[in-house]
């Protein structure tokens, strides 16, 4: 009896502490994105100095610079494009793979499964180096394609796993029933199985997209001189100065605020839908 009264409180305190832990770097990032010289027009030689600790003045300088920064925009675009394609392809291929693995028997299935998960067990450094060697071997110059292919190869097992997990909770007799009722396997897949899988697909995308968007280790080996992603650009900007440029902080803040709004919105929408349906 006693247990039940204090456990929730303890858990609550612990939970809140975890949110503090997770958000501490984010808060410093947001704060420092507004730290700048009083005169916003002033040319600053070493912007990184404004992220090192001392508070100077409240300034929107870095936000202004962000929107004028051609290279940053390009890098953001590149990261976004790679992540979008990588998620699309890996979700498509991963779903197909998971479906086949779950529903079919085929020759070499055991081996296939073992190989499928190997990328998950290989540290990014090794994946990066080995795929780099391979791309050199076939003569594919580093750039969009090398990054995308490596990201897809790494995301497929991840997506497959998440979707397999979802498949275990699906009532597969529904598929058989649909096919008994005359649906071909495509229709059954599309009309019956796909809607049931949707949460899994969504979850897989939610894992794979930020992973690809933010991947540094693999991309570090595979990016070309003309194709920088955002993490690579941040790395080279921060590497020699030891601190992230405040322009990056302003971008980070915008991404944070943007995703908060996106999630808030989706919850609002879901809330309305749930209300429409009555209690879930």
């Amino acid at each position: 009896m006693k247990f039940r009264s204090w456990t929730p409180k303890l858990l609550l305190i612990f939970g809140l502490l975890m949110y503090v832990f997770v958000y501490m770097p984010m808060v410093t990032l947001v704060i420092y994105s507004f730290n700048g010289p009083e005169d916003e027009e002033r040319r600053v030689r070493f912007p990184w100095i404004y992220t090192t600790g001392e508070w100077h003045d409240f300034s929107l300088k870095w936000y202004k610079e962000l929107f004028d920064d051609r290279d940053m925009k390009k890098a953001f675009q590149n990261s976004f494009t790679v992540a979008l394609w990588s998620v699309t392809l890996s979700v498509l291929l991963g779903t197909m793979t998971a479906y086949t693995l779950y529903r079919r028997k085929f020759w070499g299935k055991g081996l296939f499964e073992q190989v499928l998960y190997i990328p998950l067990f290989m540290p990014g450094t090794i994946v990066g180096v080995s795929t780099l060697m391979f791309f050199r071997f076939i003569g594919l110059p580093r750039g969009f394609w090398t990054i995308l292919l490596a990201h897809v190869a790494f995301s497929i097992p991840l997506v497959t796993l998440v979707i397999l997990a979802r498949m275990q909770r699906i009532n597969w007799t529904l598929e058989e029933a649909a096919m008994d009722l005359g649906a071909n396997q495509f229709t059954a897949l599309r009309k019956v199985i796909f809607p049931l899988l949707r949460p899994g697909i969504f979850a897989a995308g939610l894992l794979a997209f930020p992973w690809s968007f933010n991947d540094f280790v693999i991309t570090f080996f595979l990016h070309g001189p003309k194709y920088n992603t955002l993490p690579i650009m941040i790395y080279s900007m921060a590497g020699r100065s030891g601190a992230v440029s405040p322009v990056i902080n302003s971008l980070g803040t915008l991404i944070l605020v943007g995703s908060l709004m996106l999630i808030g919105l989706s919850f609002l929408l879901q809330g309305q839908r749930d209300q429409g349906k009555g209690k879930p």
Partner: peptide, 9 residues
Amino acid sequence: AEVKPLLIT
């Protein structure tokens, strides 16, 4: 050169 900010602080 990452030491620069730490020298400043």
